[in-house]
Design a binder for these strands. Structure first.
Lengths: 233, 233
DNA sequence: CAGTGGTCTAGACCACAGG
DNA sequence: CTGTGGTCTAGACCACTGG
């Protein structure tokens, strides 16, 4: 009847997943309590808890005190995407990374940038425009605004040798961030930099990173045509 | 000196994060062992383990047996994005969801679909083309291929009343999936359905879901101009 | 109020990999 | 071989919330 013995919490997790997929436990249905499962599997309740917590984090179970644990009606599973450095991204696909700083100056940010950075940014911001290459072909435009008050050391960085993207990742600790993915038509200047047609469909990422409640930087990454972001469920 | 007392693992986590952000523990540096921290915080080692595991999952720590725990050099943080049902997505933003089935037939899939579904799909596939609306405006085109062998019951579903997206999410358990995000220019038929200009930049998702090693379905979601996908770090 | 999950503890053994 | 994280256990108390 029962197959391999239950040893660790991963075995419990696998068995729970199997029962969900086989519909032994149907969506919306309540499953046995931790104590009951612990007795059935012959392990400690803590082990069952570890397993059920993992499955719940994956979105397949809803757990509430007193109400018990139910199989999720709508398995809203979560894809986790890793946000690497641009250089690591390029080199990870076996291509050579190149980089050119186009402009770096200080000034007042446009409204949409101020808004994205919380509006509380009163000082002038450092504006950086740079182009990354993959095997000598344009890869992505990095259009970035930095709040120098949060990372004063960036004034001393040589941004012609190391990209702001990389410098910030290794020098500026952040506590959180917002990310927006979208598709945008290539503007005239973007088409020029990326060597593509005007109004070409470009994959775009807007990202703001925060140190608690103050914005560190806001960046718009505009990728050359054909770029795709892959992940797994 | 020390502030609030350490009660639970979340307190330990917060303190660890504080030390990382304050650079008390610099990137690449080794931090004390679980046993040492447990003694310092006056709690059990299991509690410290729980906290450090959480921080490591967030990508800020690298843990290896015998080698100890180090602060990550490149904090490759992971964004987790939720993949909701289309209807829930629309209604979640306060709009009314509409849906129209455009075509549903059975036939041989084109090569790129067969490839995405693992190639091992020999049977004919169910092809579904549908349009979703948000407040009567076109929202997204759902262009889907389903392997009926994996979900025979779909033959009896009334796909004019419920979208294949929703039917599959509630009737077809899956164990994994691949997702690709990109930007694509609107084709003539897409521009027609979405009521946008030809070659407009459209946010596109290709998704294949699997039951173990067999593909259940492959879908291309082509969103109307202006659509964006948001998430948080 | 009482049932359920959430967590802590002290101790133990194990698995892995550095030296 | 030895130190470190990974995990299990048995028991306990707590926090939340449904009835």
């Amino acid at each position: 009847m029962s197959l391999a013995r239950i040893h660790g919490w991963q075995d419990v997790e696998a068995e729970v997943l199997r029962r969900i997929h086989r519909r032994d436990w149907a969506p919306g249905e309540i499953i046995p309590t931790e104590a009951d499962l612990a007795q059935e599997f012959g392990c400690a309740r803590a082990t069952v808890n570890r397993a059920l917590r993992a499955v719940a984090e994956a979105g397949l179970l809803d757990r509430r005190r007193k109400a018990g644990t139910r199989v999720a009606l709508h398995p809203v599973r979560k894809a986790t995407l890793e946000i690497p450095m641009i250089r690591a991204d390029v080199e990870g696909s076996g291509r050579r990374h190149g980089y050119r700083l186009i402009r770096s100056d200080i000034g007042e940010a446009p409204d949409h940038v101020r808004h994205a950075m919380g509006g509380a940014v009163n000082t002038d911001l450092l504006h950086i425009l740079a182009l990354h290459f993959a095997d000598a072909r344009p890869f992505v435009i990095e259009d970035r605004w930095v709040n120098p008050a949060t990372v004063p050391a960036i004034a001393k960085a040589d941004l012609t040798a190391i990209s702001a993207n990389e410098w910030l990742l290794t020098h500026a600790p952040y506590t959180g961030g917002d990310i927006v993915f979208s598709a945008q038509p290539a503007s005239e200047s973007q088409a020029d930099l990326l060597e593509c047609a005007l109004n070409a469909a470009l994959f775009t990422i807007h990202r703001t990173t925060w140190d608690h409640d103050t914005a560190i930087t806001h960046v718009r990454l505009t990728y050359a045509p054909g770029h795709a972001l892959r992940t797994t469920l």
